[in-house]
Design a protein around this nucleic acid. Structure first.
Lengths: 250, 250
DNA sequence: TGAAGCTATTTTGCATTCATTTTTTGTCTT
DNA sequence: AAGACAAAAAATGAATGCAAAATAGCTTCA
């Protein structure tokens, strides 16, 4: 009665996120880490569900030692919780946790914008402009999925332009933690919020062209803050609905 | 010839940094993690030195399993490197690494200041003012150690005022990574830089009193940027001197 | 009938053991 | 004598085994 994990074969997820993009692990432990991280980030394990080690071992076809090492790392990353003598649980993010995570993401993007102004090339700005127009197309066609993806590409481009691998890795880490939420938050976006976001993106581009570091920093922070509000609101509704179907763990 | 670790008993370091302040681990693995982290952060193992697991096990009086779990976590935190089949090394920070780390720290403090403006109380500001005057005293008395400590307290107070545990933990993590450098960088500070730093701190307090979020954000970033320059310069000298005494690992 | 207590099973935490890989050491050849 | 090859020693990576803790199941008693 506590399977928590579906019977599917283990899906190796696309090379999207992760710890920062290094997907060339050789050791078994490293491979397991990548697979487990994706498995959790993709949402294959219900939040707060207990996950017996034995089951994960069978699923992944390995012994408990490397699995436990991977679990420790995932716990350090904040994706799961490790209760002493009581196993691992997918970390349940409270509303407050989400607010905090969004704010830190906002701070990181704000920093990325500031640093990007110091080093970004005209070509990179042009590329972001192209993405912006592409996104505008998705907006006009009501293509939420495309909009979401392009939006994410824009933000990743800014982070890349910051020329700071440490920042990039940290950003990817936090992005992984709130990935599910972020996704549904974007889908939940009202059309009116879309329009706002488009205007904000235009302001971002404008500041970027002028290399106005602190101005861009402000705009990006506010932009993410607005996203935060949308996401939190949406999540509050969703969790309210969930309360009837999903009983609490304990 | 590869001891790398002195014969001393394992020192339990003071409860300063760590992962965020949670120092009530019950499990052996958790205890080991805290002790090892401090041990590394305190600089008891030479940079880049190879650290045989067996030796650490004897030193800590445990078997390899929990030790290896702790090593994996420390590697995820960026304190050590794990080379496949070739053991753990204390991560050697290049000059570029340091620049990146300082910039991320600057971004985090900048964010902390921004958030602090939303929630900080008059009492907290008063407390920071007291610290500021205390620091001024250390400055006048040329007490570098006291100055360093009080300075750190001020920055930690700002982070605390941000009311964001996630940010606090992340900040502590990065602080741990560059602790040694930061320390020596402060010691290396020229008196002229001291005067600048004092002025910057006054500007910080001013912006904080007015709850001028984006202004404070800018000032804090610049303040840390200046620290970065001082630290990097100092490190460049120190590393240059080291090159004659410390032969490279390989 | 229901709840409390006790036992059995499962699960976790850590130690130990086994298999590879790396590093060292010794020997041989040129 | 120097370099190269090979065997031994050591270290790492992973699996297995064992003790303690937790959960589940059963019995007993009110």
């Amino acid at each position: 009665m506590k399977s928590a994990i579906p019977e599917t074969g283990v899906p190796i997820t696309p090379p999207t996120i992760g710890n920062g993009g290094d997907r060339q692990e050789a050791s078994l432990h490293g491979e397991i880490l990548l697979r487990l991280r994706d498995y959790v980030v993709e949402g294959n394990i219900p939040e707060g569900a207990r996950v017996p080690e034995r089951q994960l071992c069978e699923m992944l076809g390995i012994s408990r030692t490397p699995l436990r090492e991977a679990l420790k790392v995932l716990a350090a990353e904040g994706l799961i919780e490790l209760l002493p003598n009581r196993g691992a649980r997918v970390r349940q993010l409270s509303q407050r946790d989400l607010e905090e995570l969004f704010d830190v993401m906002a701070g990181l993007e704000s920093l990325a914008g500031r640093l990007a102004c110091e080093a970004i090339t005209d070509e990179e700005i042009a590329a972001i402009e192209r993405l912006h127009y592409e996104m505008y197309g998705h907006y006009l066609h009501r293509d939420m999925h495309g909009y979401f993806q392009t939006n994410q590409q824009i933000h990743e481009s800014i982070v890349a332009a910051a020329r700071n691998e440490t920042l990039k890795t940290t950003y990817a880490n936090f992005a992984g933690r709130i990935r599910r939420v972020r996704y549904s938050a974007n889908f939940a976006r009202k059309r009116q919020r879309w329009a706002e976001a488009m205007r904000e993106h235009e302001a971002i581009l404008d500041a970027l062209r002028r290399r106005a570091a602190s101005e861009l920093s402000d705009i990006l922070f506010q932009h993410l803050r607005n996203k935060r509000s949308a996401a939190i609101d949406h999540l509050a509704e969703a969790q309210g609905a969930d309360l009837e179907t999903t009983p609490q763990g304990d």
